Amino acid sequence: MHFTEYDTRVAAYAVIVDDAERILLSWFNGNHRTEPGWTLPGGGVDYGEQLPAAVVREVKEETGYDVEVGAPLATNVYVVPFQPGRRPYQSTRVIFEARIVGGELGTLEVDGTTDFAEWVTLEEAAQVPESAADIIRVGIEAWRAQSAR
């Protein structure tokens, strides 16, 4: 399918793991379009915005933390096929490693798609239900591969 025949969204996400082997996740409320569930902090990149700047902005909005963005860990493509009344859709997602440099836990987003953020052990996060965002598993696997080097 030619790129003019579907909608594309570019998104940037952060994997933030603390010294206690916990990962920071945000609770996506579903926005009346899909089931609510855990995801990595992050989201859509604004027009003209650089991906690392989008990570900084999104993490602050969703978690209350200020972050320093590291290297990209992985890319991932999520596809929603054609549905009546809606064009096919592709989300191209870039996952970055990040570390907290300030702020405090608390969602700053008002009337957005994130209700709250929470620290979850890597073990718990790796076992989230299949209905949860697959990007969590992609992020954890990429972070572990990077950490093993």
Rank of each mutant, 00 (worst) to 15 (best):
Y13C: 10
F28C: 08
V10A: 13
A11P: 04
V15Y: 00
T39H: 06
A14E: 06
L24R: 06
L24Q: 01
A12E: 10
L40W: 01
G42N: 07
W38S: 01
P36I: 06
A20S: 08
A11N: 04
Y13R: 09
I16Y: 07
W38K: 01
F28D: 15
G48C: 00
E35T: 12
P41M: 02
T8W: 03
W27Y: 15
G37T: 07
R9H: 06
E35Q: 15
G42P: 02
G44H: 08
H32W: 05
V45L: 01
T39A: 05
S26M: 07
D18H: 03
V10D: 14
T39L: 05
E21A: 14
G48N: 09
W27H: 14
G44R: 14
Y13I: 02
E49Y: 03
R33N: 13
Y47T: 08
V10C: 12
P41R: 01
L25T: 05
T34A: 12
T34R: 15
F28E: 12
P41F: 04
Y6K: 14
Y13N: 12
W38I: 00
Q50W: 00
H32T: 13
D19M: 03
I23T: 01
L24I: 08
A12L: 01
D18N: 15
S26Y: 04
E5M: 10
T8I: 09
P41T: 01
G48W: 01
V15C: 09
A20G: 10
V45A: 06
T8Q: 13
N29S: 13
D46H: 11
L40T: 00
E35Y: 13
A12S: 15
D18T: 06
W27D: 06
I16P: 11
R9P: 04
D7L: 15
G42H: 06
N29F: 05
G48L: 05
V17M: 07
L25Q: 02
T8C: 04
R22P: 09
D18R: 05
E21R: 15
A14H: 10
G48M: 07
T39P: 04
A12V: 02
W38M: 08
V15P: 08
A20Y: 07
G42A: 08
G37I: 09
V10S: 11
G42L: 03
G44Y: 06
Y47L: 12
T8G: 03
T8D: 07
R22C: 11
A14I: 05
S26W: 04
E21P: 00
R9G: 08
V45I: 13
G48Q: 00
R33W: 12
L40K: 04
N29T: 13
D7K: 15
G37A: 08
D18P: 05
G44L: 03
R22L: 06
N29H: 01
Y6R: 15
Y6S: 10
D18F: 01
V15K: 03
R9Y: 05
L25A: 05
V17S: 08
W38T: 02
Y13Q: 13
A20H: 09
E21S: 11
Y47A: 12
G44N: 09
V17E: 11
T34S: 08
H32Q: 14
V15R: 03
D46N: 12
A20L: 09
Y13S: 12
H32A: 08
E21T: 05
R9A: 00
N29M: 02
Q50A: 14
G37C: 07
